[in-house]
C-alpha cells in the first residue's frame, strides 16, 4: 500500500498517530513523519487514520502491482 499526506493541509492534529502509530509519528517540532509504503498488514490502521484526519490530508492507495 502507498500512503500520501498532503503536508499543505496537515495541521498536526495527531489523529493519524493515534489511529496508526506504526505508520505515523511526530518529530520534536510537531512535524508529521510517516512510512510511505508500510506493510499491507497495516491496511486497516491506515484506512482508519485516513478516516479520522480532520483535514482529509491522508490518502491510502493499494500498492501498484
Amino acid at each position: 500500500m502507498q500512503i500520501t499526506v498532503d503536508m499543505n493541509l496537515c495541521e498536526s492534529h495527531g489523529q493519524c498517530v493515534f489511529a496508526a502509530p506504526e505508520i505515523f509519528s511526530f518529530d520534536d517540532e510537531d512535524r508529521l513523519l510517516y512510512e510511505a509504503a508500510p506493510d499491507d498488514a497495516l491496511l486497516g490502521q491506515a484506512r482508519k487514520a485516513a478516516a479520522v484526519c480532520p483535514v482529509r490530508a491522508v490518502t491510502v492507495s493499494p500498492a501498484a502491482s
Partner: peptide, 8 residues
C-alpha cells in the same frame, strides 16, 4: 501546545 507528539 507545540507538543502534539507527547499526546500519543
Amino acid at each position: 501546545i507545540g507538543r502534539t507528539g507527547r499526546l500519543a
